[in-house]
C-alpha cells in the first residue's frame, strides 16, 4: 500500500517535471493524405519537443508539410499516426489553449476590428463581466497599434492592419501556445518588419510558447530561440535544429550587427540549398 502511494508520488513529480520542461511534445507524428494515385505520406515519424515560453520557427521548402504540421497541432487536421501532447494533454481537436494566426488574416470582413476580437473573447471569458471583456479587447487592440481603428470594418483595413487585428485576436484569448503560419508572407517588406516588431513586443510581455512557420530566413533568426529545419517531402522530418543565442529583448539593429548573425544565416541557407 505504502509502496504504491510512493510510486504515485514519484509519477506525479515526474509529470510535474515534464510539465515544467515541455509545453509541446510531438512524437512519431505521421500524416498521410489519401490521393487518387495512392497514399501520400507528407510527414513520417516526426519528433519535436518545444519548451515553455519558447519561440521556435520552422523553415523548409514549399510543400514539405509545414502547414500540415501546424494545422495538426491546432487540431484542425486529423492525425494519421503518432501523438501531439500540448500542456500535458493529448490534443483531440481545436481549442482556445492554442491560438492560430493564419497567413491570410481571415478576419470576418463584415465585422469591426473590435467585434472580430470580441467574438473569441466572449467565448473564452464568458464568465467575466462585460467591462472585463471590453478592457481585454481594447487593451490588445491598442497593443498592436489600432486604438484609432478599432471600430472600422475589417474590410476597410489594409492587409497589414488586418494582420495586426489577427495578432490581437490571438493574444487576447490568452492561449498557451501560439501557432503562426507564414503570418507576414503576404505583406511588403516594410510592413513585415513593422509587424515583426509588434509581434515580438506583445510576445515579450505575454511570454507564451510560439511556433511560427516562415520562409524568411532573417525573420526566423530575429524572432526565434530555435529554428527547426524540415527536410523536403515526401516523408518529411526535422532535418536540423539551430539554436539562436541572442539575448532578449532583442532589437533588430543589435541582431543585424551581431557577429554571429551571418554564421546563423549561412547555416540556414546552406540547409535550404541542399
Amino acid at each position: 500500500m505504502e509502496g504504491l502511494k510512493e510510486l504515485e508520488e514519484v509519477r506525479r513529480s515526474d509529470n510535474g517535471l515534464f510539465e515544467d520542461k515541455y509545453m509541446l511534445d510531438i512524437s512519431q507524428l505521421t500524416k498521410i493524405y489519401p490521393t487518387p494515385k495512392g497514399d501520400y505520406v507528407v510527414l513520417d515519424d516526426l519528433d519535436l519537443k518545444v519548451k515553455h515560453e519558447e519561440f521556435i520557427s520552422i523553415i523548409g521548402h514549399s510543400g514539405c508539410g509545414k502547414s500540415t504540421l501546424l494545422t495538426m497541432i491546432a487540431g484542425l487536421n486529423p492525425i494519421s499516426r503518432g501523438t501531439i501532447v500540448a500542456n500535458n494533454q493529448t490534443i483531440k481537436g481545436p481549442g482556445p489553449d492554442r491560438g492560430v494566426i493564419f497567413q491570410s488574416p481571415s478576419l470576418l470582413p463584415w465585422m469591426t476590428a473590435y467585434d472580430n476580437v470580441m467574438l473569441g473573447v466572449k467565448q473564452v471569458f464568458g464568465h467575466g463581466t462585460k467591462k472585463d471583456r471590453d478592457d481585454i479587447v481594447k487593451y490588445y487592440l491598442s497593443k498592436v497599434g489600432l486604438e484609432d481603428a478599432m471600430y472600422k470594418k475589417a474590410k476597410e483595413l489594409s492587409q497589414g492592419m488586418q494582420q495586426r487585428v489577427g495578432i490581437a485576436r490571438a493574444f487576447a484569448l490568452k492561449p498557451k501556445v501560439l501557432l503562426l503560419d507564414e503570418p507576414f508572407g503576404m505583406l511588403d517588406s516594410l510592413t513585415r518588419g513593422e509587424l515583426q516588431d509588434v509581434l515580438i513586443e506583445v510576445w515579450n510581455q505575454e511570454k507564451i510558447t510560439a511556433i511560427m512557420i516562415t520562409h524568411d530566413v532573417d525573420e526566423s533568426i530575429f524572432l526565434a530561440d530555435r529554428v527547426i529545419m524540415m527536410t523536403s517531402g515526401p516523408r518529411a522530418k526535422v532535418g536540423d535544429i539551430l539554436e539562436i543565442d541572442f539575448e532578449r529583448p532583442r532589437l533588430r539593429k543589435d541582431v543585424l550587427e551581431h557577429p554571429d548573425y551571418y554564421k546563423y544565416r549561412e547555416h540556414l541557407i546552406n540547409f535550404l540549398e541542399h
Binding site: L76, G93, P96, S104, S106, L108, W110, L119, Q123, V124
Partner: peptide, 29 residues
Amino acid sequence: VDKDYINVAKVLNLGVGQKVFKIILPSSF
C-alpha cells in the same frame, strides 16, 4: 463558406448558434 472562416470558428470554439449567426449567415448573405 470560406474555409478560413470555418477554421476561425473552430479555433475560437464557437457554438453552433454563434457559428451560424456570426459567420455562416453573414458570409452567405
